[in-house]
Design a protein around this nucleic acid. Structure first.
Lengths: 301, 301
DNA sequence: GGTCCGGCATAAGGCCTCCTTATGGGTCAT
DNA sequence: ATGACCCATAAGGAGGCCTTATGCCGGACC
């Protein structure tokens, strides 16, 4: 078993010299190698000299019309060629592979209520790109997780990250028509308090009731569970289990087909929004660019 | 069939960065890799950053206690490891191979009359060194021929070459005792002219006869062939075909056992000698050093 | 046989890569 | 809560490496 922990790398000669040697060995010409490597013949001559000194033996015989490999050169050339072939292939594969898989980490609600429906059109537009969608409630740290793009809610300012606003995280109560009918319709904000409030501890409720001019001191005392994601609360609301406070943009479909109703025009907005974010340094990576452009265009529709 | 004449080498990232990546991937630690590569942790960090920018994707995830490879890194690491393994092996082999084979080009006479007898003791002293002995009458050009060391005769001054004098190329007539007896013994230089002269055109004859005070104008007119090497002429002389003018040091054995006799003490010397030569730049190459030291020691005996 | 041409070697000089030192931030363990 | 470990970053400097310019050598072509 080879000792992987301490390869004798330090004994390798300058790698640039080896790269030059590879080109010269293939062309059997300093001048042609120089042109392939886009440098001068003098530089090639210099590098070969350096390598020959490190190897301790001439690698080429300088004949009038052309050069030929010495025995030492013949031993070295094939292996060097193979090593560079592997290297080039691996590098290309790494680039291509990195280009071919896009990892998106997103908050659950956005994924299920917005992205899921539309992702198909992105796949069609970019058939070479595979998308791995991951949901996480934590703020993704690009230095610690293998993620290209994240969608998160917040204020839009994160150091080192580029952020594009997708939609405002406004909020307004929603419920099923059936539940509303059960108390003869919801006509004014205070009516809501007669119904079960889903996640009553949510700060959004406090803000909305306060904006509506309704006292809601007792909200905090109510039993209830924070499900931590609008998607869950929305499902509960659709099932008629209570009133949820939700972002309109994410439930357009449910509002349109009547599974949910929005009883009041009053909409709260604490300045938060959903953002598309990625490391500033990677703003020009093709796959990131492609996803960003597509998503912003879709949002604009 | 791959296009060997123009590999896309230019697209490879800086090779130094790849070498660093290899070390980091094996250790999964910037600090440990730095210590293996004998550089600072900051330098490793820098090189990885460079490589990540070139690949277009992070290669490592920076976790609190350790780092781990990203998907892109996992794709790249094994191939890079393999490439460096090949490279290191080939380089070592080239060095070892170059160290293990010593190519000596020598004038024929020295090889057959001096070196051949003694080479065995060199092999015994250096069992790891294979010797390839080549004979050539031309002056070997180290830039054009795959030769480590040459033995040649001359004045001892060649630009760029280190030269050690082995023995003086003196010259004196020699012949078989039988041939001498055939004319009743060779008592004075002029007696030689009554015998066939091997290679009468040789300048050495002219010089020796002139030093001996004997006219030899007719020598040039004599038929005879220049065999071009003392070894051949010596064989002819031993066979009794004529008188040869030879270098004493090369025929000690023949003189000792009576196959040849040296009728006169008079020895010519035109300042030429046999020299051991090799490129100055390679004077410290182990195998060259070994051969030089051995040969000079043998000569001194 | 003289001159041109192709190809490699060498010298001098400058840029730019890459490494070092120094410092900071973040996490885990004591 | 503090120390230890590890990686990131900034600033600065040395040297590797490339370029331009020139020389040398051998072959080819009149």
């Amino acid at each position: 078993m080879p000792d992987l922990s301490s390869r004798q790398v330090s004994q390798l000669p300058p790698l640039q010299a080896i790269r030059v040697f590879d080109a010269v060995a293939r062309h059997l010409s300093f001048t042609k190698a120089a042109s392939e490597l886009a440098m001068t013949q003098a530089a090639v001559s210099y590098q070969i000299k350096v390598l020959e000194e490190r190897v301790g033996a001439p690698l080429f015989l300088r004949r009038p019309r052309q050069i030929v490999l010495t025995e030492a050169g013949q031993r070295l050339a094939p292996a060097v060629g193979e090593a560079f072939a592997i290297l080039g292939q691996a590098y290309a594969a790494a680039r291509a592979g990195a280009d071919g898989l896009l990892c998106v980490t997103t908050v659950l609600t956005f994924a299920s209520n917005w992205l899921a429906h539309r992702l198909g059109s992105f796949q069609i537009a970019h058939p070479a790109l595979a998308v791995r969608l991951e949901t996480s409630s934590r703020l993704t740290d690009f230095a610690r997780e293998d993620t290209d793009i994240a969608i998160r809610s917040g204020g839009g300012k994160w150091p080192g990250l580029e952020a594009h606003k997708l939609l405002d995280a406004d909020f307004t109560p929603m419920l099923s028509p059936k539940l509303a009918a059960s108390i003869g319709g919801v006509n004014e904000p205070a009516d809501l308090l007669r119904l079960p409030i889903l996640d009553p501890g949510d700060i959004w409720w406090t803000e909305w009731f306060s904006a509506a001019g309704v006292h809601s001191h007792d909200l905090a005392k109510r039993p209830g569970s924070s499900m931590g994601a609008q998607a869950y609360e929305a499902n509960a609301a659709i099932a008629g289990h209570g009133v949820a406070i939700l972002t309109r943009a994410l439930f357009k479909a449910e509002l349109a087909d009547g599974r949910l109703i929005q009883p009041f025009d009053l909409v709260g907005d604490d300045g938060h929004a959903y953002w598309l974010v990625y490391p500033q340094a990677r703003r020009n990576v093709p796959k990131i660019r492609a996803f960003r452009d597509w998503l912003l265009a879709e949002i604009a529709c």
